[in-house]
Write a protein that binds this DNA or RNA. Structure first.
Lengths: 258, 258
DNA sequence: TGAAAATGTCCTGTATACAAGACACTCATC
DNA sequence: GATGAGTGTCTTGTATACAGGACATTTTCA
């Protein structure tokens, strides 16, 4: 079931939609859009009638799931959505354990640690704990990031067929922030290597000064359900990296099923 | 508009509800309930028809806003709800600044720092950063906590009339975790004092070994929109506490409007 | 082991929520 | 100050989503 895409364009009179579906479309669009949007523009983007959009957005706003910026009327996610969402990371077994483990890892190593999953066939940092280095703090938690940009992404695709991978990765996701293009064959090979090694190290992908060291979290069926990873300065000594890797793999094992 | 309470009990045939409202009821109930619940029990709790509840919950589950525990079928908040919620704290101006300030405060003082707001006429920790002490980490972030249990709560009620306060505070919220009962008159007086002082200190309320030092964050209209606070061991020296208070007030000013 | 309760799915009629469009405003822009 | 685009509110008719209930399982526990 496609969540966000508006119904197929036909000449037939527009199908009536259930408000549930409209709500899900609104939320998903807002999340993907990445910034506030005004109601009119939202209705147009979803190909939804303006009147229905008004009532729904107003309902959700009154409930606090959305907020409307008082100055320009743009819609954002609201406080209540945030509070509801916190329940997930507090209650979900894996998320809860992973959060604690990330905190522990960051504290012990002093390095920025992250817990990551796939969502929508994109990569998402679910939880992050910054390290002690005076680095910039990444504010990418919860955002959707192209899978090929990350070490975790290579692990998360482990076990999938070539066709599946090609299907999953959009063309533009192969282009790095600095404009370089990742070759799909190299990428698929890297996935295989990562799978065999049981970890993955990428250098200077998203930016030139960091490397990313990721380890898999296996689900009950032996699939890679999530990853835990360290964001490191690129110029570490080999023995430092090796020590960090061993420590990371320990966390990886602790979080994996069985 | 009451969010969670089911419609008034009449003998008239049940009013039909819009699915928007049902959804809001489901989410709010789940949040307040604090743990997973099965669909049947949910329908009963909301006084909603079972069939409608099934379809709605299934829709929300497919969308990832809810999750159903595979073993016993209980409903929880889902991954997508969490990701949607993260947008709030990333985009909302106050929440964003407060998060950075809390991180800074925790780092500088080494003490557990929190950003708090009212929600539903209950008190909620919106964001927390643990300090360096080997304390237990509170996992109360996002939960609804009785206002009288906290220093922040006293600040957040500043400026409200006695009647409003009595209206707001449920009887049972005056009872502390250890069974002691807070006198409503003392509580109202403490609110006035907190308002005049521009900060609030409470000792040994929620547990015997901590004190809580809170400062207001003023909104544009001079109202207390939120608070920022420190959770400290109860046996600090006066001069230590004073220094922390000054530092806290600095953050308070930085976050307040104007 | 049998009865009672709960779970999940499906079907149907009708109360009503949605789509469409009208209307009165408010901004921009020329 | 005229034009066009967008905003927010209301009203109305009808397609349909919801409430109710039936049914086949599964679970509970006496």
């Amino acid at each position: 079931m496609s969540l966000v895409s508006p119904e197929q364009e036909t000449d037939a009179p527009q199908r009536r939609e259930r408000s549930v579906d409209r709500i899900l479309q609104i939320l998903e669009f807002l999340h993907g859009h990445g910034e506030g949007i005004r109601i009119g523009a939202l209705a147009k983007a979803l190909n939804a009638p303006r009147s229905s959009t008004y009532t729904l957005v107003n309902d959700l706003t009154q409930a606090g799931l959305l907020e409307i910026a008082p100055d320009d009327g743009r819609i954002f996610f609201g406080k209540r959505m945030y509070l509801y969402g916190l329940n997930y990371i507090r209650e979900n077994s894996l998320a809860k354990r992973a959060r604690l483990e990330v905190d522990r890892l960051a504290k012990e190593t002093g390095e920025t640690s992250e817990f990551c999953m796939l969502q929508n066939s994109r990569y998402t940092i679910m939880y992050m704990r910054p390290g002690n280095r005076p680095f910039r703090i990444s504010s990418a938690v919860g955002l959707q990031i192209p899978i090929p940009w990350t070490a975790s992404g290579r692990l998360l695709l482990a076990g999938r067929s070539r066709a599946e991978i090609e299907e999953l990765i959009a063309e533009e996701d192969l282009v790095l922030p600095d404009g370089r293009r990742i070759d799909i064959d190299d990428f698929i090979e890297a996935i295989g290597t990562a799978r065999n090694n049981g970890y993955c190290l990428t250098k200077g992908l998203v930016d030139a000064v960091t490397q990313c060291l990721a380890a898999p979290i296996y689900g009950a069926e032996g699939n890679v359900e999530a990853t835990i990873c360290l964001v490191l300065p690129i110029n570490l000594l080999d023995e430092q990296t090796a020590a960090l890797r061993d420590r990371l793999l320990q966390s990886s094992r602790a979080l994996s099923s069985r």
